[in-house]
């Protein structure tokens, strides 16, 4: 249940900003010190991290939906167990990311409300549909692969609770990534239909996955301060390039073709990819992706239909407390 009220911070001086404190804070960051929940921090640092960690948590929770779409249709019992365990892991990630965000002073309830109302964002990638079983392999291979690229540097993020959460998340993500790749290997070594299914999934997911790293560096709003605060250690374009370079040989191994005929390797060994359709990215972020409405509707439905359960649990806890108090008074 998430009814904890953490957003009142009366009686402390954490809101007071002054140049001396700000300089001390930056000195700690520069010395690679970890910032902990009770430490003083600039309001903008708190706000940036609350936004980033909660968006990350929302992404884990919404991300359960496209993969959850295949749990009841997984093609073998081994795959079914692995997929259910994987989606359960994502839920666990969401839970401890919300907990990490709560240490900054906003309750899970308030953060979740922000997502359900459409105000808070989650990763654009989860607004694409999973049409075939090969999408489950592709999500593990590429989406989790891209997430790992993004998240490994976050294990050294300046904010302690986030960094520690990311260490655990990354371990599980790397397991998911191998699992996804193994699904792709099986499909690519399978029948012609299975191989075509794998190629089709790659065709559909490739560009949206590249967009997961965010806008190109010259257009990114948050990078400068995030870099100064050591929340972000590599730029969007650097991470995207690292991902592409790691993925090209994997696609070759699978015998799949990356849907970018213009792609070529440069003198430094980096794979240069064609222009990304940033208009599509903007549209998906604005709510116009193929599944935005379905995803939010599914989360709202779960939330609304679960309201009576949460109310019952709260009512029962209250009754029980009162009974115990009455007993103690006797």
């Amino acid at each position: 249940m998430y009814t904890q009220a953490l957003n009142s911070s009366d009686g402390d001086d954490r809101g007071i900003e002054d140049a001396g404190r700000a300089a001390q804070f930056q000195a700690r960051i520069d010395a690679d010190d970890r910032i902990e929940p009770n430490d003083w921090m600039p309001a903008a640092y708190r706000k940036t991290l609350t936004r980033q960690i909660s968006q990350h948590a929302h992404s884990e929770i919404v991300g359960m939906l496209p993969e959850g779409n295949w749990i009841t249709r997984a093609p073998s019992l081994r795959r079914k167990a692995a997929l259910l365990a994987k989606v359960q892991d994502e839920c666990g990630h969401g839970l401890y990311l919300y907990a990490a965000a709560e240490t900054l002073g906003t309750s899970r309830e308030e953060l979740v409300d922000g997502m359900l109302s459409g105000k808070a964002k989650y990763s654009s990638i989860f607004n694409y549909p999973t049409l075939t079983w090969a999408d489950i392999g592709t999500i593990g291979w590429l989406v989790d692969g891209a997430a790992i690229m993004n998240q490994i540097p976050l294990c050294r993020c300046s904010y302690g609770p986030y960094a520690r959460a990311m260490i655990r998340v990354c371990k599980e993500e790397s397991f998911h990534q191998r699992q996804g790749f193994e699904i792709m290997v099986t499909l690519c070594r399978g029948t012609a239909e299975q191989k075509a299914m794998a190629q089709n999934a790659l065709n559909r997911w490739w560009w949206p996955v590249l967009m997961m790293f965010g806008p190109p560096d010259q257009a990114s709003q948050h990078s400068d301060t995030s870099t100064k605060w050591k929340i972000k250690r590599f730029s969007n374009d650097e991470l995207r390039q690292k991902f592409v370079d790691a993925t090209v040989p994997q696609a070759e191994f699978l015998g799949l073709t990356i849907p970018d005929p213009g792609m070529k390797q440069n003198a430094n060994g980096n794979w240069e990819y064609s222009a990304i359709d940033w208009d599509e990215f903007k549209q998906v972020l604005a709510g116009n992706g193929p599944c935005n409405r379905d995803r939010l509707a599914a989360r709202r439905k779960a939330h609304d239909e679960g309201a009576w359960v949460r109310e019952a649990a709260a009512a029962y806890a209250e009754k029980r407390k009162n009974r115990q108090l009455a007993q103690a008074a006797e």
Binding site: M1, Y2, I61, M64, L65, G68, I71, L84, V87, Q88, C91, G92, G94, L95, Y98, A298, K301, A302, E305, G306, A307, V309, R310
Partner: peptide, 11 residues
């Protein structure tokens, strides 16, 4: 999975 009344119950 993904539709429970609370994340704890999803788990």
């Amino acid at each position: 999975c993904g539709h429970a009344p609370a994340l704890e119950e999803d788990m």
